[in-house]
């Protein structure tokens, strides 16, 4: 049997791309102490707003920009709820996800009245062979991940961000503006999540379909725990998911596996992530102020 291992590896990076964008966004949020379960909806909104703008203006750059703006706005909403008001973060996140998915589908129905549209322009792959990837894939692995690694590790902003996520009382005493830093983290992280969603419409598919995100946001939340809130392990987790997904897509068209139900193959990467979490997710140390709103005593 001639197994196209290079094709599977190339697909691994493509599939991992939205998870790297959104997963690293979630790392930034959670390092600042906020669990952002809005991620699924923010990716959905990024995918839809990016698609809508690109389709109506014909400009991919504008589409991407619009997705980023949508992400920033969603991050500000999460900030209002979890930072300013101190609402339960699970509820705020799920509510945001439900709202953004409903709003995207409402607008989609209103404007197009059917399920799926295509845009005439979409990002093309660059280079060739194994290296034939979308520009946003290269940006994710070669620019975004190193930049965020440096940002969290060495920059002043990164130190402040980690401080408010670990021990907001101490950060406050040291003169770090806790609320402002958390807002900044939420908006930056949510913008990255929206870009991850926009990758699906503007690069991968060139179209918008309902349920386009399909639980990828929840995968990212799992990857962040699996990667213990560090940039490179999260990237590695995204590649692990990407690999299992690429493998199942390849195996699904391999005669030997044709008897296996397609749905089982699609579910396989989810089960791998749960198994990975069960094995490596034990005894992890959460950020000190995880899920905890901060109010000066």
């Amino acid at each position: 049997m001639d197994f196209p291992i290079l094709a599977v590896l190339a697909a691994t990076f493509t599939i991992a791309t939205p998870l790297v964008w959104a997963g690293l966004g979630a790392v930034i949020n959670e390092r600042a102490g906020i669990l952002n379960l809005g991620i699924e909806g923010i990716m959905y909104a990024g995918a839809f707003v990016g698609f809508l703008t690109a389709a109506s203006t014909g400009s991919l750059a504008l589409g991407l920009t619009a997705a980023i703006v949508a992400g920033l706005a969603a991050g500000a909403l999460m900030g209002l709820l979890t930072v300013t008001l101190g609402v339960n973060q699970h509820v705020a996140g799920i509510g945001t996800t439900l709202l953004l998915i409903a709003a995207s589908e409402f607008t989609n129905r209103l404007l197009f009245s059917s399920g799926s549209q295509t845009i005439t322009v979409k990002f093309d792959r660059i280079l060739s062979g194994f290296f034939a990837q979308y520009p946003m894939t290269y940006v994710a692995f070669l620019l975004l991940a190193p930049a965020l690694w440096w940002l969290l590790r060495s920059s002043g902003f990164g130190l402040r961000l980690r401080a408010v996520g670990e021990n907001p009382e101490a950060a406050d005493a040291a003169g770090i503006p806790v609320a402002r830093t958390r807002y900044a983290a939420l908006m930056l992280g949510s913008a990255l999540m929206a870009v991850g969603g926009a990758f699906l419409t503007l690069s991968l598919l060139g179209s918008f379909t309902l349920d386009i995100v399909g639980g990828r946001g929840w995968i990212c939340i799992a990857l962040v725990i699996f990667g213990r809130w560090r940039v490179w392990p999260v990237v590695a987790g995204a590649l692990l998911f990407g690999f299992t997904d690429a493998l199942q897509l390849q195996l699904a068209i391999t005669p030997f596996f044709s008897a296996v139900p397609n749905e089982l193959m699609i579910a396989f990467p989810y089960l791998v992530v749960i198994a990975a979490l069960a094995i490596w997710g034990r005894g992890v140390r959460y950020p000190g102020a995880y899920l905890t709103p901060y109010r000066r005593a």
């Binding site: 379960l37 929840w218 579910a267 992530v273």
Partner: peptide, 11 residues
């Protein structure tokens, strides 16, 4: 439990 219960929904 948040992550594992969430991930089992699509499954």
């Amino acid at each position: 439990e948040v992550v594992t219960t969430l991930l089992l929904n699509p499954v």
